[in-house]
Simulated scan of single mutants.
Amino acid sequence: MILLGALVNGLAIIIGGSLGLIFTFIPEHVKDSILKAQGLVIIALGIQMISASTDVIVTLLSLIVGVTIGEYLKLEDKLNGIGHWLEFKLGDKNAGNISQGLVSGTMIFIIGAMSIVGSLDAGMRGDNTVLYTKSFMDFFIALVMTTTYGLGVIIAGIPTFLYEGLITLGAKGFAHFIPEDVLKTMTKQVSATGGVIIFAIGLNMMNITKTRVGNMIPAIFVAMIVIYIMSFFR
């Protein structure tokens, strides 16, 4: 089932959020330990994905070009700006915490590299590993957030599923137009480039670095283009 990863992610948010309604108090030191443990798993996943690279030079080139584009466009600032704007428009104008929790939760769950990398991986390779790992993380994030924002965080599982599902289906449709041998190389390279981004996310979660991972997202698409162009010279 191609949408299984997106579905599991949406359900993880709903289930985690539902438990959050019960556990209204979680000590700060427990939250910190959970975050650090998730960071270690994300780093390990990133290393595993990077090992799939068929050409380290292409990975490096994709990251250099992609990060340059992202920094020039200030992509991470724009993504954060969208979240703040939606929180202001929907969260502050509506009474209660439901809309605020819905907007805040949705922005946290969908605005990030893991959503895009995971959905592309699911669509192009049929591999839901990244989305499953993200689901595990989002389960605990939803649990903690619901203790503050309430029901709105649980509802955020629906738009998360729709967002990731659309990207997955789009990637699956795109894959039909690419020759099989080129597609295999492309998916491995996309996975490797995405692995570097996942690795950076893990380092950020461990408070080791403060990498602007949002500005690295274009590197994924640069890797696809580079592999496609290289196929004409083989």
Rank of each mutant, 00 (worst) to 15 (best):
I69L: 15
L4S: 12
R212Y: 12
F139A: 06
F199S: 03
Q38P: 01
V190H: 02
K134P: 04
T193S: 03
D138L: 13
T24Y: 06
G5S: 08
V103A: 13
I82M: 15
E87Y: 13
K89S: 13
T209D: 00
G173C: 08
K188R: 12
N128A: 14
E76M: 12
I15G: 04
A37D: 08
E87M: 15
A223H: 01
V30I: 14
K184T: 09
Q48D: 13
S119C: 09
S18Q: 00
K184D: 13
G118I: 07
I229Y: 09
V8I: 15
H176N: 12
P218G: 08
L131F: 07
I155V: 15
G81H: 02
G10S: 05
I178S: 03
N204F: 03
L203Y: 00
I15N: 05
E87H: 12
L183M: 11
T148F: 13
E28C: 09
Q100R: 15
L3Q: 00
P27F: 09
G152Q: 08
T106S: 14
S191T: 15
I69K: 07
K31Q: 13
S135Y: 08
I111T: 08
Q48I: 11
L120P: 04
S33E: 11
K172Q: 12
V153N: 05
G39H: 10
G173L: 14
A122Y: 07
T168Y: 01
K210D: 14
L102R: 04
I158N: 09
K184H: 13
T129V: 09
G157S: 10
Y228H: 13
L21E: 05
N80M: 14
D92S: 13
Y132M: 10
G202T: 05
L79T: 05
M124C: 08
V58R: 02
N80Y: 11
T193W: 06
G5D: 02
H29D: 11
A156W: 02
I158F: 12
I229C: 11
L61E: 06
V65K: 00
P159D: 10
N97K: 11
L183F: 07
E180A: 14
P159G: 10
I34Q: 02
F174K: 02
V153K: 04
I141N: 06
E71S: 10
G152L: 07
M1H: 14
M216E: 08
L60K: 06
I26G: 07
V196M: 08
I2P: 09
E87L: 15
G195V: 00
I43Q: 03
E71K: 11
Q48T: 12
Q48P: 00
G16E: 03
V41C: 13
I108Q: 07
G112P: 06
F232P: 07
G17R: 02
T24F: 06
M186Y: 01
Y149W: 11
L102K: 03
L131G: 07
I198S: 00
